[in-house]
């Protein structure tokens, strides 16, 4: 292979071309990617369907436990909702009285998950709403229980969501209890890591982590997850915390894409 032959030169050109392709930015490539993912997603979903149904049957006891927990949480939330309508009316009345303007108003678009990246290095979902539905790059994506990620690529009829467990994702966050601020980013383990905190930061296992108002992408106060472990080396001035996402990212089937107005 290393003798001087025209073929070796051609192989080198192919390798060089593949390397230079990494630096090309073109809308044609984005549309080509979505055409391929759109074509491949349907057979993947068809083949996955019987296996997923089998998994649901085999692990029915987990579904039942989850149902009992959700029913209990629902009853608790209903009891808290009593009186909220009145509070909302009073809030609106006071806003008008003091001429207080809301900084932003959010609407959302519901979208179905039609595929996911099978790579070990990425945590990405493909959803069935695109620029035709008003979706733009950078829009936050949520589920009913917490944040899922943000829009990374958009085509006319679809979009890709980079999940909070992807190493390239990051969001400014704070601990709900102690209000310590840090940066949450994804890891290859499917979890998140909260970093840039001092070793003396008042964060314990079990603390809830929410989005901070310092984040330009996400509205404040959205639930990210719960701290499950602390990493703090001796003589190290900083600590990092492993956060388990609230949303079950491997099982998510529907998402809400938040549109800022």
């Amino acid at each position: 292979m290393f003798e001087r032959k025209p073929k070796t030169f051609i192989y080198f050109i192919i390798l060089l071309g593949a390397f230079l392709l990494i630096f090309v930015r073109n809308s044609f490539i984005t549309s080509l990617k979505f055409k391929i993912t759109g074509s491949a997603s349907l057979p993947i979903r068809i083949v996955s369907f019987p296996f997923k149904e089998m998994k649901k049957i085999l692990f029915y006891h987990r579904t039942y436990d989850e149902y009992i927990r959700l029913k209990r949480d629902n009853n608790e939330l209903r009891s808290r909702m009593v009186g909220f309508d009145e509070l909302l009316r009073e809030n609106t009345r006071l806003e008008k009285l003091f001429n207080f303007k809301r900084q932003s108003i959010y609407s959302s678009v519901a979208s179905n998950v039609i595929g996911r990246d099978p790579s070990n290095w990425n945590a990405t979902l493909i959803v069935d709403k695109g620029s035709e539905d008003g979706i733009e790059i950078g829009m936050p994506v949520m589920s009913a229980v917490g944040i899922v990620g943000k829009i990374a690529e958009v085509s006319a009829a679809g979009a890709k969501v980079v999940l909070i467990s992807d190493p390239s994702f990051s969001v400014t966050a704070l601990a709900r209890r102690s209000r310590e601020v840090g940066l949450v980013s994804g890891t290859l383990q499917g979890m998140c890591r909260m970093k840039y905190l001092s070793a003396q930061a008042d964060i314990k296992v079990g603390d809830e982590i929410i989005t901070s108002k310092l984040s330009s992408t996400f509205p404040e106060g959205l639930l990210i997850g719960e701290v499950i472990s602390v990493y703090s080396a001796k003589d190290n001035p900083s600590a990092s915390f492993i956060v388990k996402p609230t949303v079950s990212l491997s099982q998510i089937e529907e998402v809400l894409i938040i549109q800022k107005k």
Partner: peptide, 14 residues
Amino acid sequence: ADSFSVKPFGINIF
């Protein structure tokens, strides 16, 4: 592989 990824196109090809 690159079509499903959000990373720069060409990483998996290379």
